[in-house]
Structure formats: C-alpha cells, structure tokens
Write a protein that binds this DNA or RNA. Structure first.
Lengths: 124, 124
DNA sequence: CCTCTATGTTGACGTTTTTCGATTCAAGGC
DNA sequence: GCCTTGAATCGAAAAACGTCAACATAGAGG
C-alpha cells in the first residue's frame, strides 16, 4: 500500500531543484512538477493534506478525515490516492484502520522551487 | 488588461499565510489556494511562468512565448489568462505587442505556505 | 466460516479543462 | 480610410476530473 508514489521532485544528486526562476523549465520537469501542483490544486486535497500535516503525531486515520467533509467515503479515498500518487503522502494499514502521513521533504522542495532568488538572475 | 487578478494569498495584515502544517485549512482559504495551485498544475503554464520568471528583464513578449510551444496561439493566450487570473502574472500592451511579468511576492508567499516548520508542531 | 466495520476499487455521469479554428480587437503603416 | 500583424475572445469537440452508488477487500471478533 505504500509503493505507489512518484519520484516527483528530486532530479539530480546535486541537491536538486533548480527553481522556477533560474531557467526555463524543460518539458519533462514541467510535467513532473505539474503533477504535484495539480494534486494541490483542489480544495479538498489541500484540506486533507493540511489536516495530516498539522496533526501532532504526524498521522491521521481515514476514519477521522472522512467525516470532516461533506463527501462520500469513496471520494475521500480517491483524493487521498491522488495525494499519494503525487508523492505527497503515504499510508499504512494498522488493523482495521489506515493511517496517512506527509512524506517529509517534498513540500519543502516544492517551496524551494517556488522561492525566487532575492537577487534576480543570481544563477545566470 | 491588468485588472483581473484575484486577491489570492494575502489574508490578514498579520503578515499573512498560516502554513499548511500549522492548522487544518478552512474551506475558504483552501479554495483560494487551490485556485493558484491549479494554475500551476499544468506543464504548459509552469513552463510559461518559468519562462517569464527566469527572464533577465522580468518581461517576456507573447510573441516569444507562443512559438516556444507546439500549441496554437489561442491556447497559449488562454493559459496566460489563467495564470493572470490566478494572480501570478500581469501584462501590459506596448504598441503591437503584449508583455507579461511575474507579480512579485505571490510565489514566495506560496513557498512560505508550503514550508513546514523545522520543529514540527511549533505553533501548537 | 460468517458477519461486521473500515477502506479501496469500479463504472457511470455531469462538470470542468484543454485545445483548436474562426473571428474580433488593437495598433501601426500605407 | 484600408491592410497587416499581434493578441484576445468565441464556440465547439475531446479529454480529464470530481463525485457517487455499488461492489470488493482486509481485518476483527464471534
């Protein structure tokens, strides 16, 4: 259940992401990143992710998330799957319940990608 | 031509965004943010934005962007419009040509929103 | 084994998104 | 004024998406 994420952001071993503003994105990288942003581009998924990310223990049971929305259980399950496929979260079954947590690093890498260098054109 | 952006991110005068991981997102804020992330959730738009953001002078003419893609001119125009409506870019007509630039701050605010506090649960 | 609860999956439906061709609008040059 | 060029808008077609009801699966507890 936990082997479905994409290798979303990390590219080279050189630390990684090159920032939106450092050079025009090539096609492949744009496609990778778009997949993650698309996953974030839905209010339900944003709330789910925030719900998980803001949780003290770092984990949230599906049984807690489902009733927080005015949506059917399959729909929530579907959104969680998309977040997982985007490489943002992962999950594990423990007994009857399934717990989700945020995969560390990914959000920060995304943030780094969006952050524009204070001195524009630094890399050039 | 430049009065169409959304008031996307800035909320209070208190500096603003409260970070994905600080507390569960409320419905309204999730909707606002989702709109921006949705704009970023397309490879073409990501490349357009990167093209503009990485440009030395900060401005790019549409006439330079259109031929860089294997898409029709109306399609590029459409994507630029979505980026503009998301509050990420703005444009101005100068003579025959239209120039686009990245609205400052928005990307950094988004980045700040995504950045998770190093010490998890800091706000709690 | 059977049943019950918690989740994930499937198939269908309506809505939104992406894309294009055709048209329209804006500005310059004749 | 008319024509040309650059860009936005319109209308329509195809694809992708969000949602649900129905079903399937996993584990707990008889």
């Amino acid at each position: 259940m936990s082997k479905q994420e994409l290798e979303v952001i990390g590219q080279g071993a050189d630390g990684c992401c090159d920032g939106l503003a450092s050079a025009p994105l090539d096609d492949e990288r744009a496609a990778q990143l778009a997949k993650v942003f698309k996953a974030l581009g839905d209010p339900i998924r944003l709330r789910l992710l925030s719900m998980i990310a803001s949780r003290e223990g770092g984990e949230v049971c599906v049984c807690e998330m489902t009733p927080a929305f005015d949506l059917s259980q399959p729909t929530i399950s579907h959104h969680l799957k998309l977040l997982r496929q985007a490489g943002l979260i992962d999950c594990e079954r423990r007994g009857t319940w399934v717990y989700y947590w945020v995969l560390p690093g990914v959000l920060d890498q995304l943030a780094a990608f969006l952050t524009t260098p204070q001195t524009a054109g630094a890399t050039a």
